[in-house]
Amino acid sequence: MSSTEERIRALVDENLEIDGRPPGRPLDLDSSLRDSGVSSLDFVAFAKLVAQEFGVEVSMEECASINSVGELIEFLDAKAA
């Protein structure tokens, strides 16, 4: 597991409310956030938090193009590269 992935998984567990996800169930990185029931407000707030943790900027347009936690990890890795 990459260090970005490890940090994101912890941030998801602490901050992202995924309606109905059984506690402790591992997160599927490729699942669509919309199909997981994450609202746009919760996701934008989460993406902003994650960007701050990683010291990068994230615009709303970038948020709109991210569809899964896996894509969020790719976005952060690309910004850090």
């Binding site: 901050n15 409310e17 609202s39 407000l41 919760d42 934008v44 707030a45 989460f46 902003k48 938090l49 701050q52 994230v58 615009s59 709303m60």
Partner: peptide, 16 residues
């Protein structure tokens, strides 16, 4: 938006 407590909204103010 349902009225319920939400996390991390303060940091969003500048962005939205």
């Amino acid at each position: 938006e349902e009225r319920r407590p939400r996390k991390n909204l303060e940091d969003l103010v500048e962005t939205v």
